[in-house]
Design a protein around this nucleic acid. Structure first.
Length: 152
DNA sequence: TCACGGATTCGT
DNA sequence: CGAATCCGTGAT
């Protein structure tokens, strides 16, 4: 996902931003992953085949944009933490005007949100780091599953 | 129906 | 570093 272009189409304009920071959430075992609570009405979309959107509200105010990443019945998702113009996942949701209506939307069919290959492919390095805000997840909080786009 | 708490942000 | 913020979730 890193380095790809996220496209958001509105009725009046279309915006495109490069994805600069992501985090991975991997399966029911991963205590930081919402799917660790099992398949519920909230997490069920993560059990779908990759390519659909998982959105949810945190702290009663921020919409988090995630892309389901793995195979059917394998609940894994990638959180879009940062775009070239927005640092922080809450700001990403705000910038792209993400809300509950995107829940389960198929990125390959959507006419308002999808991912493209960058026009000009630039070389970059991927920095790894611990995930943010998941200290409650015990050893899982130390997994280097946060990925940051950086200069080569 | 309701109590609980969080994949954050912003200000100090 | 700490408080704000408050809806949705998951269980009852």
């Amino acid at each position: 996902m890193l380095g790809k272009i996220l496209v958001r189409k509105f009725s009046t304009k279309t915006i495109k931003y490069k994805i600069t920071e992501t985090e991975a959430y991997c399966g029911e075992e991963d205590l930081a992953c919402h799917a660790s609570k099992g398949k519920t009405s909230r997490t069920k979309v993560m059990y779908k085949t990759g390519g659909v959107i998982y959105v949810y509200l945190v702290y009663g105010m921020h919409w988090m944009l995630n892309i389901v990443a793995a195979n059917k019945d394998q609940p894994e998702a990638v959180l879009i933490r940062g775009l070239e113009k927005s640092d922080g996942p809450g700001k990403v949701g705000k910038e792209l005007k993400i809300d509950k209506s995107f829940y389960g939307e198929d990125l390959t069919k959507s006419r308002r949100l999808w991912v493209e290959e960058p026009v000009v492919k630039e070389k970059f390095k991927i920095k790894k780091a611990k995930r943010i805000g998941v200290d409650y997840a015990g050893k899982w909080s130390n997994k280097p599953w946060r990925f940051i786009l950086s200069k080569p």
